[in-house]
């Protein structure tokens, strides 16, 4: 099962250096990665406005540059308990437009060799497999990669309806 992030990374490999920049995000104790090429901006300390009756994956609305963005709650997607207090938002660009991704906090940006990427193992749980692209093998840990295309609220909405 190939995916777009991996495909994009591989294409990059051929053209230039084999290095990929990844923004790390923290969620509880876990660390996830998001390719920096898909991030428009990181908004810190946001308090999204809840939307009553919205699908469960919607963390709320956030104001971004005069536009109102729908924020996807990563916690909700991964079936984690909600977090009180301000959260960080990654403003991501997908084919369906811009949206926000609510995470506990945003960490440092890592540069890793693209060759260290491995797709999802076949044993991964179905629901997670829909959100996770694969992982980069870091020296002492795995950086689980998120796929912006798969986190797009429009796509998630369709998936939920189905």
């Amino acid at each position: 099962m190939s995916n777009q992030v991996a495909a994009a990374t591989r294409r990059k490999d051929k053209s230039a250096s084999a290095l990929v920049e990844i923004c790390s995000v923290r969620l509880g104790n876990a660390l996830y990665g998001m390719p920096i090429s898909h991030i428009l901006e990181i908004v810190g300390g946001a308090r999204p406005q809840p939307v009553p009756l919205a699908p469960s994956f919607v963390g709320g609305l956030v104001h971004y540059r005069g536009d109102v963005l729908t924020a996807v709650s990563l916690r909700q997607l991964l079936r984690m308990p909600p977090l009180d207090g301000p959260q960080d938002i990654l403003v991501l660009e997908s084919s369906g437009g811009c949206f926000g991704l609510l995470v506990d906090s945003v960490g440092e940006v890592l540069t890793v060799p693209a060759a260290d990427f491995e797709p999802n193992p076949s044993t991964l749980d179905e629901t997670r497999r829909d959100l996770i692209a694969g992982a980069y093998k870091l020296q002492n840990a795995l950086m689980v990669m998120l796929d912006p295309e798969r986190l797009d609220p429009v796509r998630l909405g369709v998936a939920e309806a189905a």
Binding site: L53, P55, V68, L69, V154, A161
Partner: peptide
């Protein structure tokens, strides 16, 4: 008036969202 994402249009109760003078968002 700011349009809502397709994912939220399905709720059907909101015609959009707006940013209030206080900086808060309102549906």
């Amino acid at each position: 008036v700011k349009p809502l994402s397709v994912a939220l249009k399905g709720i059907g109760l909101y015609s959009g969202a707006t940013v209030l003078g206080s900086g808060d968002l309102a549906l």
